[in-house]
C-alpha cells in the first residue's frame, strides 16, 4: 500500500498541460495527416469507383471513371445478386460453426493446461504448430488429406473395417465440412493461446479462496474464471470472427470454391470477380459493403468489451 501517491496523473489539468497538449498536436500533425491520407484516400477512391462501371479493360485511368458513371447501379445489382447472397450465407455458416468450435476447443485445451501434467511443454509446442503453418501449405495439406485415396479415408477404413472412399472435396456438403475442419485445425491454437493468457491472468488467490469456501470445479469456472475472462473472451471472439469472415487462402487451395460454387465464400467470390470478370466497379461496391458491415460489428464488440472491462478491472 506504500504505492499511494497523491494524484500523479492529475498533472494533465491546468493551463500548462493544455498548452503542452497543443504543442503535441502540432508535432504529430504531419504524421497524422499521412496516416489519414493512407487510410482515407483508398477508401474515397473505392467509393468513387463503386459508383461507376469502370474496369481496367476500358483502357482509361481510374480517375476518368466518371465517364462510366452509373450512380448506385452496382449496389442495386448486388442486392439481387444471388451468387453474392449465397456466398455471404456460406461465409456466415463457416463462421457460426468454426468460431464457436475453435472457442470451445481452445478453452478446453487452455483449462487443461492450467494443471501440470507430464509433457506439458512438448504438447504446448505441438499445439501451437498449426498456427505457424503457412495457410497455403495448410490448404495443400488438407487437399491431400481429403483425397479419395487419402489418409482420412484410410483412417476411416481402418476404424470401420470397411473400404471407405468418400469423395470429400467433390461432394458439395462434404467439401464444406472439410474446409471447416481445416479452419478449426489451423485456428484453434490461437484461441487456445489467447484464452490461456486469460486464464493465467485470473488471480490464483481468488480461485483458492473460492475453493476453500467449498466451490467445486464447475462453480469456480462459472463464478470466477468466466467473469474475470470476459474481456479476453470478447477479444478472442472478435479477432476470430473478423478473420474468419475473410476466410480465403486455405479454402481456395483445397476446393477453389467448388465443387461448383459449393464452398464459395465472399472472398473467393470477390477474387473470381477481380480475376475473371474484371468488373472493378462492382467489386468496389462489395468491398465497401463488407467494410461497413464489419465496422458496425466491430464497433458493437468494442463497446461491449469496454463495458465488460470496466466491470472486471479492480
Amino acid at each position: 500500500m506504500s504505492g499511494v501517491t497523491e494524484a500523479p496523473g492529475a498533472a494533465e489539468a491546468g493551463d500548462d498541460a493544455r498548452a503542452s497538449r497543443k504543442l503535441g498536436l502540432y508535432l504529430t500533425l504531419p504524421a497524422q495527416l499521412l496516416v489519414l491520407f493512407i487510410a482515407v484516400f483508398p477508401l474515397l477512391m473505392q467509393l468513387y469507383i463503386s459508383l461507376t462501371g469502370w474496369s481496367p479493360l476500358t483502357g482509361m485511368g481510374w480517375w476518368n471513371a466518371w465517364s462510366l458513371w452509373n450512380s448506385f447501379q452496382n449496389y442495386v445489382e448486388l442486392a439481387v445478386d444471388n451468387r453474392w447472397w449465397s456466398a455471404l450465407l456460406r461465409t456466415l455458416l463457416v463462421m457460426v460453426v468454426c468460431v464457436p468450435a475453435e472457442f470451445l476447443l481452445g478453452l478446453g485445451l487452455a483449462t487443461l493446461f492450467m494443471d501440470n501434467f507430464y509433457g506439458k511443454r512438448a504438447f504446448y509446442s505441438i499445439l501451437l504448430m498449426p498456427m505457424m503453418v503457412v495457410p497455403a501449405v495448410a490448404g495443400y495439406m488438407f487437399f491431400m488429406l481429403f483425397q479419395s485415396g487419402g489418409p482420412v479415408n484410410d483412417l476411416l477404413s481402418t476404424l470401420s473395417g470397411q473400404n471407405i472412399a468418400i469423395a470429400w472435396l467433390s461432394n458439395p456438403s462434404l467439401a464444406m465440412v472439410a474446409v471447416m475442419v481445416a479452419d478449426i485445425w489451423q485456428w484453434t491454437p490461437l484461441m487456445f493461446l489467447i484464452l490461456l493468457a486469460g486464464l493465467v491472468g485470473v488471480q490464483e488467490d481468488q480461485l483458492k479462496a473460492a475453493t476453500l469456501l467449498g466451490a467445486n470445479w464447475r462453480q469456480r469456472f462459472v463464478t470466477i474464471m468466466l467473469p474475470r475472462m470476459k474481456t479476453i473472451i470478447i477479444i478472442a471472439l472478435a479477432i476470430r470472427t473478423i478473420e474468419n469472415f475473410k476466410i480465403f487462402d486455405t479454402l481456395y487451395i483445397m476446393t477453389g470454391g467448388g465443387p461448383g460454387v459449393a464452398t464459395e465464400t465472399i472472398s473467393v467470390y470477390i477474387y473470381k470477380l477481380i480475376t475473371n470478370d474484371l468488373n472493378w466497379g462492382y467489386v468496389a461496391a462489395i468491398a465497401l459493403v463488407i467494410l461497413l458491415t464489419l465496422s458496425v460489428a466491430l464497433g458493437i464488440a468494442i463497446s461491449r468489451m469496454g463495458k465488460a472491462s470496466t466491470e472486471v478491472t479492480k
Binding site: 488467490d205 483458492k208 479462496a209 476453500l212 466451490a215 467445486n216 470466477i224
Partner: peptide
C-alpha cells in the same frame, strides 16, 4: 474444497 477451513488471504482475494 472439503477441509472446511476459513482462510483470510494477505491480499484478501476479494472477488
Amino acid at each position: 474444497t472439503r477441509r472446511g477451513v476459513g482462510f483470510v488471504f494477505q491480499n484478501y482475494a476479494i472477488f
